[in-house]
């Protein structure tokens, strides 16, 4: 057996990270299939359930099938799916050190790899959830007109990148401030209601809208709705440039913060 195995090669940093992230995605997906009752179906049902509840509540309060010229399900789906994507990626940073401590015995595995793997995994799963929801809408309502697919894909990717940045910052922050977990959990709930998940920002009062549009998560959600239908009205401040620029700056800041603290994080 020994004779057939080649010696281990010295790899570049990029090659190592590529392998590690791939392996972690494999591990996490296998774990989810084994651990979560119902496997992938359970993961896919989570946003579907939320959409159904909000749709029912909205219909009780205001029995109209559309919100801002968009079918209610198509309106809610991007908000719920994108926010869940962000939330799951961002909150991973708080628990990853404790949950994966033993993995760092493999010196090629670094904390940032677990964050990247989580982002890829969630991006894949929530993209599948979006396809399922849009598929259901298309099958039953026949009015799904995807007018700008690249914009929809960009919104998903930007949301995952913002999630990665938040995850890295909370990874470092929770090392220095262990109580951060509680604070961020409350902040996350507040963010849910400040991100236009269940309402259309154009229908909010002007003074509130002028503040809300600074939220890049809200902008991503609005852009994804706009991608579904050009009839959907978004505030004039919502542009692709803002969340893209924000993601770039925020991610750079998070990477700088992480790289300056990586050694401290893996110290035993």
């Amino acid at each position: 057996m020994e004779g057939t195995m080649s010696r281990l090669r010295q790899l570049s940093g990029f090659d190592i990270q590529w392998r590690v992230v791939n392996a972690l995605v494999y591990r996490e997906l296998r774990r989810r299939v084994s651990d979560v009752q119902g496997g992938f179906l359970a993961v896919l049902m989570e946003p579907v359930g939320q959409i159904a509840v909000w749709a029912a509540l909205r219909f009780i309060v205001h029995p109209v099938g559309t919100v801002n010229n968009l079918n209610i399900f198509l309106f809610l789906a991007p908000g719920v799916i994108l926010f869940n994507l962000y939330s799951r990626v961002a909150s991973h940073g708080l628990t990853t050190m404790e949950a994966n401590k033993a993995l760092f015995f493999y010196r090629r595995v670094k904390p940032i790899d677990t964050v990247l793997a989580k982002a890829i995994e969630e991006l894949g799963l929530y993209s599948c959830a979006a396809i399922v929801v849009f598929g259901i809408v298309w099958a039953y309502l026949y009015n799904l007109v995807l007018q700008n697919l690249p914009l929809l894909v960009t919104s998903f990717v930007l949301m995952a990148l913002i999630g990665v940045a938040s995850s890295l910052l909370s990874l470092v922050g929770s090392y220095y401030f262990p109580n951060l977990k509680q604070v961020l959990s409350w902040l996350n709930r507040a963010l849910y209601f400040a991100s236009g998940v269940i309402y259309s920002p154009i229908q909010t009062p002007q003074f509130a809208r002028d503040i809300l549009v600074y939220n890049p998560i809200l902008q991503c959600i609005e852009l994804s709705r706009k991608a579904l239908s050009m009839d959907y009205q978004v505030p004039s401040q919502v542009t692709l440039g803002y969340p893209s620029g924000f993601a770039l700056v925020y991610l750079s800041l998070a990477l700088w913060c992480y790289t300056s603290n990586e050694k401290v994080l893996i110290r035993r």
Binding site: L8, R19, A23, R30, R31, L103, F105, Y106, R108
Partner: peptide, 20 residues
């Protein structure tokens, strides 16, 4: 410590083999 309890021996070995 690096083994995931809910994964099989084969899956755990596959994971490390993908890295190294």
């Amino acid at each position: 410590g690096g083994f995931q309890g809910s994964l099989t021996g084969r899956e755990n070995v596959t994971f490390v083999s993908m890295i190294y």
